[in-house]
Amino acid sequence: MRLPLYQVDAFTDRVFAGNPAAVVPLESWLPDAQLQAIAAENNLSETAYLVRSGEGYELRWFTPAVEVDLCGHATLASAFVISTILEPGRAHIEFATRQAGVLTVTRDGDRYTLDFPSRPAAPAGSPDPALVPALGGPAPAAVLRGRDYLVVYDSADAVRALTPDMAAVAKLDLFAVCVTAPGEGGVDFVSRFFTPAKGIPEDPVTGSAHCMLTPYWAERLGKTVLTARQVSARGGDLLCELAGDRVRIGGQAVLYLEGSILV
């Protein structure tokens, strides 16, 4: 069997930056074990699978190790593939997902805007005592928790300088760790994202994390439209907007690779 494969760099306007995602359109769903095996073989932070459903698409995301409940950059990559290759010019796409409900993506020129659920974090109370030592940096200004830990530092430099012990991070009691700080140079906030237990030591640009970051920084800065930068080695830029119980996340994407999978 031959399956189409597209690799897209998301949240960037150039190749070799942003977050690479594989996008695999399917005629119908393959067994879960085969979907996971393909994602492991791709060895990217996410592989997205699409199946046409009416006027929209069903969408699932897999890391090299697990299926995840929500993924931003691979949703952006999927919308890019649909609107530039599968249905050129399509400007509005609905994705039915298994755990995050219906997600929509709109295209305006080269920019794609994801409509995702807002996921505010709450003060952590008693976070895992191994958390701060695992991150390899100074004591944070605050620690919150939702699906993931949200660890807040005072400066972008402190976030960049963190040297996490990935083996220790992998043993923490939540899905992942997102670290953040006020931005600089016209950027409202910066972040990094670590989830080694799920097969991704450091995710280059994490759209889903901004479902938690956006409500935090919107309240703290007193504004609903924010510019964000993920300061991983590859780096990526996002435009975020808090709209009630939804978060709109905007960015660009570029095609890196087009090929076939033989299974």
Rank of each mutant, 00 (worst) to 15 (best):
V81C: 08
A79Y: 07
R119V: 12
S232M: 13
M1G: 14
P201F: 13
E94I: 01
G250S: 15
V254C: 11
M212N: 09
I261G: 02
P127K: 07
A197P: 08
K223Y: 02
D157A: 14
G146Y: 02
R111K: 11
G109C: 06
T75N: 05
K198M: 14
R90F: 05
A176G: 14
Y49G: 01
V51P: 04
D165N: 14
A158L: 11
G251Q: 08
S28I: 00
F80E: 13
T180Q: 01
P4W: 06
P25C: 08
L103G: 08
A100E: 03
F189W: 06
G56H: 06
Y57F: 15
A243P: 06
V159H: 03
I85P: 00
G89L: 02
A161D: 05
A40M: 05
D108Y: 03
E58P: 00
L131Q: 12
Q36T: 02
D128M: 07
Y153D: 02
V151R: 07
A17R: 15
T75M: 05
G222T: 01
A134R: 04
L76E: 03
L59Y: 13
G109N: 04
D203S: 14
T104F: 00
D203T: 14
A130W: 00
M1R: 14
A79Q: 08
S232T: 12
C71F: 11
D237I: 11
V205H: 03
A167E: 13
F189R: 01
A161G: 02
L3D: 08
R119D: 09
L35K: 03
E27Y: 00
A96R: 14
E87M: 03
A142I: 03
V159A: 04
G185F: 00
G186D: 08
V247P: 02
D245M: 00
G54S: 09
T75E: 07
R98K: 14
S78D: 10
V254A: 07
A158P: 01
G236A: 09
G236L: 11
S118A: 15
A243G: 01
